[in-house]
Design a protein around this nucleic acid. Structure first.
Length: 185
DNA sequence: ATTTTCAAT
């Protein structure tokens, strides 16, 4: 991913009409996580005017992972850095995927909380995803930096935090915590 | 909430 795309899409104070999802895969061997760098990649959402669209970014992520046919006799950890947190439908699809693949665990680091629905079901989707074993958190400056170092063609330039990154991250973190600790009914 | 949130003008 080029530097401009990262900054435009992961800035937690912007609200772009698209979503980028960077993911990496590790094989877990006891307490050791072995990176499988050949699986490292990023996907983005596509509109109806684009081939294979329209789908949210998570659709292409699951498509990529499924095509890998990860060995069911091994244990893997998927790590996602996503610019918008999953909508209800995507959260549900990820939940189903985790239930069908007990040898795979998932961590999601979201830059922003996606709350654009009328009924507030996005909250339920995130809770169900967490209940299925996924770890869901808001990206901190360390996470942005890690994503920059890992997925961005930074050409040697260090990650430059934008104004207000920490405050926004903190605010979103509190929002997410309130969502995830709410009792499901 | 009255919001330009994985668009559509």
């Amino acid at each position: 991913m080029d530097r401009y795309t990262f900054i435009e899409n992961f800035n937690n104070q912007e609200r772009p009409f698209k979503t980028y999802l960077c993911f990496k895969v590790e094989r877990l061997d006891g307490d050791t996580a072995i990176p499988l760098d050949e699986y490292k990649r990023f996907v983005r959402s596509k509109g109806p005017d684009q081939p294979q669209g329209p789908h949210h970014a998570e659709f292409y992520f699951l498509e990529q992972i499924r095509s890998r046919n990860l060995d069911q006799n091994q244990h893997y950890r998927l790590t996602c850095f996503i610019s918008w947190s999953p909508c209800y439908s995507c959260a549900h699809n990820l939940t189903t995927f985790l239930k069908e693949n007990p040898h795979i665990s998932l961590r999601i680091f979201a830059s922003r909380l996606y709350t654009n629905n009328r009924f507030g079901w996005y909250q339920r989707g995130l809770r169900e995803l967490q209940a299925a074993g996924a770890q869901i958190t808001i990206m901190t400056s360390q996470d942005f930096e890690h994503c920059w170092e890992t997925f961005v063609d930074h050409r040697g330039s260090p990650f430059q935090p934008w104004e207000g990154l920490e405050a926004k991250s903190q605010e979103l973190r509190e929002n997410l915590q309130a969502i995830l600790r709410t009792q499901q009914n």
